[in-house]
């Protein structure tokens, strides 16, 4: 099998495993639903645009940390050995990133719609906002998947993912919040263009770094 073929097969395998055990994906949905409802109760609909945007990304941050925390944990010893003999580490990390990207994009869209239902606001540049959600999901999934790989080698301490991952996410989150805020305020594409370019290059750097560094974790 070729390199890409194996990656695609692995993504499908991950999806099938997830689907077989629907418990974890349901838990994820309920987690984000519950956190949105908590913010709804706390803010009582008195919410301005900046708070809306920040809350949305904060909930996304915590939900995605939760979603990705298990991405290496749930692999049993046997499955890991199987991967080890069948795959190169580069294929594994790419497959995990792509699968988590799909998971997070779906999750962020669901979150976005629920957010729109409980706190209806008018987003001027919806296309730009959706693009920033997609780019944010790419960044979150890449960084957190890589850190989850690191944590899985370090006694699988659950708190460690947040401690190690959040500082690495600061640059991404600060740009993405700025970017999506501009989209809410209806800034022209020309204004946001530079931020999107920075965001895309940041994502490229993180994907490249994970791709290059993961083999060192794996070989251990």
């Amino acid at each position: 099998m070729s390199f890409t073929n194996k990656v695609v097969q692995l993504v499908l395998l991950e999806a099938r495993l997830e689907w077989k055990n629907k418990q974890s994906i349901t838990a994820l949905l309920i987690y984000s639903l519950a956190s949105i409802f908590v913010t709804y109760l706390a803010f009582q609909q008195t919410i301005d645009l900046t708070t809306w945007n920040s809350l949305f990304w904060l909930i996304m941050l915590f939900a995605s940390t939760n979603a990705i925390a298990k991405s290496f944990l749930q692999d049993s010893k046997g499955l890991q050995l199987y991967y080890y003999s069948m795959l190169s580490p580069k294929q594994l990390i790419l497959a995990k990133i792509i699968y988590n990207l799909a998971l997070l994009s779906g999750l962020s869209l669901i979150n976005f719609f629920i957010f729109q239902i409980v706190f209806p606001i008018n987003i001027d540049q919806l296309g730009q906002y959706l693009l920033s959600i997609l780019l944010g999901s790419i960044g979150l999934s890449t960084v957190l998947t890589m850190v989850a790989g690191i944590v899985s080698k370090a006694n699988n301490n659950a708190a460690l993912l947040a401690i190690l991952g959040f500082p690495l996410l600061f640059p991404l989150l600060s740009i993405i919040i700025q970017c999506s805020m501009n989209a809410i305020n209806g800034f022209d594409w020309m204004v946001n263009q530079q931020l999107f370019i920075v965001l895309i290059s940041l994502n490229l750097i993180t994907v490249l770094l994970s791709y290059l560094l993961f083999p060192y974790l794996w070989r251990e």
Partner: peptide
């Protein structure tokens, strides 16, 4: 090894 990977990242 693991700390090295994290440090580069």
């Amino acid at each position: 090894k693991i700390a090295g990977v994290y440090a580069i990242f």
